[in-house]
Write a protein that binds this DNA or RNA. Sequence first.
DNA 1: CCAATATGTAGTCAAGGACAACAAATGCCG
DNA 2: CGGCATTTGTTGTCCTTGACTACATATTGG
Lengths: 383, 383
Amino acid sequence: MPAGDNVDGVRRRNLAAILDLVHHGRAASRAELTALTGLNRSTVAALVAELAELRLLDEGDPVASGGVGRPSPGVQVNPATVTIAVNPEVDAVTAAAVGLGARVVGRIRRPLETVPDPTTAVDVIAELVRDLTRRGTRVAAVGLAIPGLVRATDGTVRWAPHLGWREVPFAAMVEDAVGLPAHADNDATLGAVAEHLFGAGRGVADLLYLNGGASGIGGGVIVRGEPLTGRGGYAGEFGQNRPGAGDRLSERGTLEDEVSRARVLDLLGLEQVDEPALATAIAASDDPRVTAELRRQQGILAVALGNAVNVFNPELVVLGGYLATHLAWQPEGLMAAVAEATIPAAMEGVSIVPAALGEDRLLIGAAELAFRSLLRDPASWRA
Amino acid sequence: MPAGDNVDGVRRRNLAAILDLVHHGRAASRAELTALTGLNRSTVAALVAELAELRLLDEGDPVASGGVGRPSPGVQVNPATVTIAVNPEVDAVTAAAVGLGARVVGRIRRPLETVPDPTTAVDVIAELVRDLTRRGTRVAAVGLAIPGLVRATDGTVRWAPHLGWREVPFAAMVEDAVGLPAHADNDATLGAVAEHLFGAGRGVADLLYLNGGASGIGGGVIVRGEPLTGRGGYAGEFGQNRPGAGDRLSERGTLEDEVSRARVLDLLGLEQVDEPALATAIAASDDPRVTAELRRQQGILAVALGNAVNVFNPELVVLGGYLATHLAWQPEGLMAAVAEATIPAAMEGVSIVPAALGEDRLLIGAAELAFRSLLRDPASWRA
DNA sequence: CCAATATGTAGTCAAGGACAACAAATGCCG
DNA sequence: CGGCATTTGTTGTCCTTGACTACATATTGG
């Protein structure tokens, strides 16, 4: 909180910068780190040595750079330090150990008979954390991707409609149960973080991410390379927005009511299919009602995205889940419809792309959340 | 651009932090600076001395703190360093010399016969800059608040509909004409910055600002204490958004088409009145058509604000110009309508308030833009 | 095999803030 | 009114950090 800075801060930031570069796959040798940081060779050597001592990085054999000159030692993340990432849902709890560099090393999906209450979820998570904690690895923290609104300050789940949770101090409960620091955030926000760092949005500082799931539409925004949280951490709730759409609106008129996967499934006579199957079914269908519904949804989605592009002027829009399926149906059509709903300057150079990360997306985002304090101040975590 | 940090950076940031605290009115003595920065007394003394030598701050007589102990010297901004802030409009060019601490010392409004083309505007600005440059003051830069879309990187006016400008390298033109660095940005964005730093949004890190002017509705967003720019600098264009509004929409359906000052003026039989007069006329009117139109507009504005609150989860919404008049008409009514259009968590603790700065708002914002590089690195500007 | 190039390594240096000690100025209280 | 506690300014010293220099080392290319 103090506005002043001191020399210790320089060290902390430089350690963090180097760890970050390796973690995010932007550097793989000391020489690359020297170039990217602008620091002196000798300084980089000392910093990498300190991070190696902290068991966060490993120095390995020289990597072939291709040019002349003495080869530089390779620098990799140390797999011994991990987080446990968890995604509780209505029908299952998924968890994994995730190392630096988004390495998902273990992955367990524990199906549930009934929608879990918070206590049950904590019990399952505690068990999964035990199963995932291997000898020789150090767990930095637990990250929780929650399908609902999460208060940023303390990880309280304010309202998770599909789980039926309200005002649950979930992060604190998990912390007590597993004896590790636990951090929680909204699943779509973490999805945006994951796509930004390791997926379709690598290197993009300003992007929008919208995901269509069974539970409606969630969103996350990256602003200047950081997730947009807002005051309480509830930012990015595009699903509840009401885009203007002429007379095509139903009674409620929110985006997730209108752009609804269930409506398309109904028309196709399907139930419980995954996205690839839905995409195939859409492509195979010649039912004009399906096309009409998709076109109707496209118009509404385009206005919602147009509104968002006008306001954020992002570089990239990433669509996941059902919305990625929608995009795949008519990529140019959606692009054109969004362009029509935006001011031209804000739309310049904007791409709309499907999410690149698959099932691990939320776990990678949750891991990033759990790694956050470590990444910001590697030296603070001497253990 | 390099990710690394060195000891020089510490000095630069500490100088910037101290200048910022005094500039933004958060500290007025060395002792306060010591407390707020967390730096050592001796360090603060040295930093303030350096800023005084750079003619950015002045050390004055001790200010009464009220408590025991040796009094601490007062620290004020040095009025010798100013920027020239300019706001070209369709019917006039307004300019002022603005010192640190948002001190508007001179203010000239030069009325125009016709809408100025870029060259004419530059000539007028060059003349105003000469008139405002007093002996003994140093002009750091020129800041331009433009009613239109401005590219952040180079200050090119991409499209200013009311001025009729398109693709005008305006900042560069002004730079050439006056021989000073010139920076340009969208007027509403700069209004948001001004309200954030010196107006209704002091101390608020996340806020939305929307302004209703003759030229439609402009907006700006502050995220984590910094203006949201997006990729090109075009963020904040709420006026072109299409909020969902049931069957109440006209053909185009953008916010600024629907929430239109002109419609209310028509119904009231007025032309060319300022906001206080309009507010009085609204309060005095008992025409049911006026009330109906205001209510219609309130509904649409509420959905637009609701959409924005869902996405940004701000701490504060600041309304200026015609939108402030609208707010004053029925503050609770608008608040309730917005609350209905948002998810409850995102709306928690959100206030909707009128803008606090008057006619100087854009000049203060433009001055902040012009001061920006100086505030970031005070020592770099040795002249 | 040698030159050119790039990088690692070790030692020295400069800059910046922390800290300690002392001086100075104020309020408080008897 | 005088002494004391409190707060802050001032000065000098110290520690940490990265920069820089010189030299060693490893690779490419002729």
